[in-house]
Design a protein around this nucleic acid. Structure first.
Lengths: 125, 125
DNA sequence: TGACATACCTCATGCTTTGATGTATACTGC
DNA sequence: GCAGTATACATCAAAGCATGAGGTATGTCA
């Protein structure tokens, strides 16, 4: 995962598989499209490098959390389409719980963060 | 950082320095006590291994974000007490913002997580 | 004497991201 | 035809960080 604006990328160490599973929850998708979808959903805050993407997909498949099939197109290169397995769906729920625990634990340590949103435009002068 | 119940530990890759700075915001503390404080605040969810703790402290000191002094006790081994610098305090604010952006980005991807708290005891039965 | 807690430090190992490189197809502009 | 860009897969060396074990030393308790 590479950063866009700040240094979010290197903070991602173990979270990439969770993102992949989460995107596949909404239906099968091929690798390249998964990466694009993560960018889109995160509003370009996260960007998945191919050196992270493909190894992570292979690992998830070896663990039985996703399955793949090759799909040829009338035009363009073949795609490897991934789908969530039942095991993978269950694992996603676990990992989302784990994510919540993780966030809670960190925020317990760093203290309450005031949830003040920065206004997008110059509303006050 | 090592896990306690689940596998929170390995998810921490780049967040340890932020935790250290956050704990030192409330006053100087020696390394070992910082680790204990992180455990206490996170309700034992996070545990900082010494192989993570001491290298991270050294890096932060080299970056000028914290300073240290040795302190001898009437009884027991000497302690290295760390304190936040002004630069460190400013950096902490940056990293807390970065943390918020990170959490937001991940949750944008994995979807809304219902914030339902598990009751601690057996209130219904 | 042994076990345990405090308190510092180092190091091999392993996992994951980064960033570059490689292959191939298809479209666009020159 | 050729260069540039986008799609779409894959691999690999290098670097970063946590893990877990090991080492040193002091102090307390049984």
């Amino acid at each position: 995962m590479r950063p866009r604006n700040t240094e979010l990328g290197e903070l991602l160490k173990g979270h990439t598989p969770t993102l992949l599973l989460a995107v596949l929850r909404d239906g099968p998708l091929h690798g390249y499209a998964i990466a694009r979808e993560i960018e889109r959903r995160s509003k370009e805050a996260l960007r998945l490098g191919e050196g992270s993407l493909y190894p992570a997909l292979r690992t998830l498949e070896q663990e039985g959390l996703i399955i793949s099939r090759w799909e040829t197109q009338p035009a363009g290169p073949a795609r490897k389409v991934y789908a969530l397995t039942e095991t993978g769906a269950a694992e996603l729920i676990k990992r989302m719980r784990s994510w919540r625990d993780f966030v809670q634990a960190i925020e317990d340590v760093i203290g309450g963060i005031p949830h003040v949103q920065q206004p997008t435009g110059t509303l006050s002068g």
